[in-house]
């Protein structure tokens, strides 16, 4: 192992302390260096650093997801699982594209470590758009397209042009992700809803509405008038929805 490989091995060990015994069993000069590691200390450092990474990198952007995931796994175990996941190797900077967090969480769910979590993808998609997908687009920064295809593909539609004042993404979810993100507890049965999101003056504006909002957004993007929208979604629904969209500066 070169010096750089030894350093990379140490970095991995601090994220996956359970690998130490296997590395030592491999023998050789490198094992002699790694044999100087105090296993108890390694475990303590791994736990502390994983928790700090969870708190610094992910908690501020994905508060609802982190809170919900810790219902299935203790926070320390969740943090260790995320920093030890293969997806962590793909993090850019402080996981600015959220690749490590989102793919790590999805991977944990697929492997059954989160129990029954049918809400997970909805919540991740919502918080991802709020904290990463839309802000990075507004700054002209690249996003992880493969991640977006997996997470957003089936549940988002983008609208622009016509009467829309700006590009709007409509996220269709079944769960109360907005309330979970805000930390207001809301027990309710799943019920489809749409979050229309757009960047306005460096902030993400949002309208939460029933699913027919998708039809309204389609008509708005086609430049259709209020009457056409009322004909499609009903007069009362159209009036309320158009008011919300105006308040959010998504239409003029």
């Amino acid at each position: 192992m070169s010096l750089l490989e030894q350093m990379q091995a140490v970095d991995r060990l601090v994220r996956r302390p359970g690998d130490l015994q296997a590395l030592l069993a491999a023998g050789g000069d490198d094992a002699a260096v790694l044999a100087t590691i105090d296993a108890r200390r390694l475990d303590a450092v791994a736990r502390m650093q994983a928790l700090l990474t969870l708190g610094r990198w992910w908690q501020p952007r994905f508060p609802g997801a982190v809170e919900s995931l810790t219902g299935a796994l203790p926070q320390e175990e969740l943090a260790l699982a995320l920093v030890g996941a293969p997806a962590f190797e793909r993090a850019e900077g402080e996981d600015v594209k959220a690749t490590a967090f989102v793919l790590g969480a999805l991977d944990l769910a697929e492997r059954g470590r989160l129990g029954d979590a049918p809400w997970l993808e909805d919540l991740l998609a919502y918080e991802y758009l709020l904290a990463v997908g839309l802000p990075r687009r507004a700054q002209g920064e690249p996003v992880d397209e493969a991640l977006e295809a997996r997470l957003l593909g089936p549940r988002t539609r983008w609208f622009e042009g016509g009467r829309l004042a700006r590009r709007v993404v409509a996220l269709t979810v079944a769960w109360p992700v907005g309330a979970w993100h805000e930390g207001t507890v809301e027990d309710e049965e799943p019920e489809p809803r749409v979050h229309a999101l757009a960047v306005v003056d460096d902030e993400v504006a949002e309208v939460e509405a029933p699913v027919p909002a998708l039809d309204a957004l389609t008509l708005l993007a086609a430049g259709r008038d209020d009457k056409a929208i009322a004909d499609k979604v009903g007069k009362k629904n159209a009036s309320r929805l158009l008011g919300w969209l105006r308040d959010a500066e998504m239409i003029g």
Partner: peptide
């Protein structure tokens, strides 16, 4: 930094 990877903690 190790290669392309940014570390959250000094190594």
């Amino acid at each position: 930094r190790l290669g392309a990877r940014y570390l959250d903690f000094f190594q």
